[in-house]
């Protein structure tokens, strides 16, 4: 089975999956315009490869491994969209389809070069956040300023603090955003390496309440999405 096809499947499951993380076979079939029977076959195979957990009649859910692949693809996809719009000046309606095809063929080196060339964008032209890379740097500045291509990779990809479950802990890895906002968060103690935990989030993409250095701070979703952390001791 081609890598491109597997990646398409993983993306489809990621997009469809509801709160329980499961995507139904029929929905996947509809999205990819395939026959449900062949979708079932592919899902069984992906289950063997450890990319999804497939249960007949229940649908498929991504494993950690599968999810990691999707996040990388999403990153490439959205970077490519920015590239097509900003550099090649393609109309915004066209960039999605093109990026859908290109995302499967570019390698990590190209991805990294794109990110640098575009000046570390944080959002695609449609406003979805671009997931961060997993290179072990303290900030995007570090990456921009040095040309060391053999940088170490992080064991885990940093995730946004908003993806934590209430009560879960992590350590700040880096914060994206304008100088003022970063400065403010810094003043409140959100500095890389600082342990933080999520207390709760308000419904409908409302703000989150986090605990840092024994203080509770409420942060709007838009800002909190740009605070990236790593979960401790997995």
């Amino acid at each position: 089975m081609a890598r491109e096809q597997i990646e398409e499947y993983l993306e489809a499951i990621y997009d469809i999956a509801g709160k329980d993380g499961k995507a139904k076979t029929t929905e996947i079939a509809e999205k990819l315009k395939n026959a449900p029977a062949s979708v079932t076959e592919v899902l069984q195979r992906m289950n063997r490869d450890g990319l999804v957990i497939y249960e007949p009649y229940q649908g498929a859910a991504l494993t950690k491994k599968g999810e990691n692949i999707v996040i990388r693809i999403k990153r490439k996809h959205r970077l490519l969209e920015v590239f097509l719009e900003k550099i090649l000046h393609l109309p915004q309606e066209h960039v999605h389809d093109q990026a859908c095809k290109m995302e499967h063929v570019i390698n990590d080196e190209t991805e990294q070069a794109l990110c640098k060339k575009l000046g570390v964008p944080t959002e695609c032209p449609h406003g979805s956040p671009i997931p961060p890379c997993n290179i072990d740097v303290n900030s995007c500045n570090e990456c921009l300023q040095t040309d060391d291509s053999k940088r170490k990779k992080r064991k885990q990809r940093p995730i946004s603090i908003t993806t934590l479950k209430p009560g879960q802990k992590g350590k700040v890895v880096f914060i994206r955003g304008g100088r003022n906002v970063v400065q403010r968060l810094c003043d409140l103690g959100l500095i890389s390496g600082t342990p933080v935990s999520l207390i709760r989030g308000a419904p409908l993409k409302g703000p989150v309440e986090i605990c840092v250095k024994g203080c509770k701070i409420v942060i709007g979703r838009g800002i909190a999405e740009k605070i990236f952390i790593q979960i401790e001791d997995l």
Partner: peptide
């Protein structure tokens, strides 16, 4: 608008 950043007093 910039987002909210606010300390939550007990």
């Amino acid at each position: 608008s910039v987002g909210i950043i606010m300390e939550m007093p007990p």
